[in-house]
Nucleic acid binder design. Structure first.
Length: 284
DNA sequence: ATGGGCTCCTGATGGC
DNA sequence: TGCCATCAGGAGCCCA
């Protein structure tokens, strides 16, 4: 569910509420969300118990908790339905449904909830990558469009060599990370490109424009706290984001295009919905 | 190497 | 009211 803007909004909330705090108590279950750890939840427990949280960092849709004086981190990926909430000191201490991890801090606690368990909570180790330190488990993904070193031109040059559909490529976290189904469709609309065209059918310039459109859309979404359709995505304090009101195509099948008035259509690309304007997004 | 399909889950929604 | 089908902000894995 959450894409880069939503993950970034959550990351900022986590930094605000828990940077510098000490983890007083770690509790959790045997959920699938711990599946990437050798000893499941126990691996996470052993890492975090009694430790001080330094900050939260992020690349694409991956974020991770950095501890003071330790190269190991807790990598958090929210999948489709993961949520992180900060519960204040006088908040409820009972576990909500599908809570898989709770960290009691000096004041308040952090709660990880995920009904579908597509998310992952993984202990990993930081490795140098360019100017950054990235967890090993997420070292395969590309830079995201909001990183200073991200290079849309080199990304575009790679993209034009592929016969894959453009929409699929935008969702490929190894080519460029952070873009999900919402922002892929919004970027394609902004660039006037139909998602079922092939990577090699676009010019390098078109690809650059498309990638920059994705960057713009995501930066704008962060400004308003991300996209909330329902309570599945809220920030760590439970507040929704307001970018849904600025969506031009995503979820708007049957509604008029904001630019030309044509009816927005929906089709399936590799198993995911693709919303587009048949007039503004040329199919040739 | 590359592309595309299946799969892991729960919950909300809409048609009959 | 139920019951069933469909859909959902992701991505790892497997097969052709």
């Amino acid at each position: 569910m959450p894409e880069l803007p939503e993950v970034e909004t959550i990351r900022r909330g986590l930094d605000l509420h828990s940077a510098g705090a000490t983890v007083r108590k770690v509790s959790g279950d045997d959920s699938r969300v711990f599946r990437d750890n050798p000893a499941g939840f126990q691996t996470v427990h052993e890492l975090l118990q009694g430790r001080q949280i330094e900050t939260f960092d992020r690349r694409g849709k991956f974020m991770w908790m950095v501890l003071s004086d330790d190269p190991r981190v807790l990598v958090i990926h929210l999948g489709m339905s993961g949520q992180v909430r900060f519960v204040g000191a006088n908040g409820s201490s009972s576990s909500p449904p599908h809570e898989h991890l709770r960290l009691v801090l000096d004041e308040g606690s952090l709660s990880f909830v995920d009904p579908r368990t597509f998310g992952r909570l993984t202990v990993s180790v930081l490795e140098r990558q360019g100017d950054r330190r990235i967890p090993r488990v997420s070292s395969h993904i590309g830079l995201d469009p909001l990183e200073p070193d991200w290079d849309p031109v080199s990304t575009a040059k790679r993209a034009v060599r592929s016969r894959r559909m453009v929409k699929t490529m935008l969702l490929d976290q190894e080519l460029v990370s952070g873009i999900g189904n919402i922002y892929a469709d919004e970027a394609l609309f902004r660039a006037g490109i139909w998602g079922q065209r092939r990577g090699a059918d676009l010019s390098v310039d078109q690809w650059v424009l498309l990638l920059l459109a994705a960057a713009d859309a995501m930066a704008e979404a962060i400004e308003v706290g991300g996209t909330s359709f329902d309570s599945l995505y809220v920030d760590v304090s439970g507040n929704p984001g307001y970018f849904a009101r600025e969506l031009t195509v995503y979820g708007r099948e049957g509604h008029p295009c904001v630019a030309c008035g044509s009816v927005i259509r929906r089709t399936i690309v590799n198993g995911r919905s693709h919303f587009y304007c048949p007039e503004c997004q040329r199919t040739e």
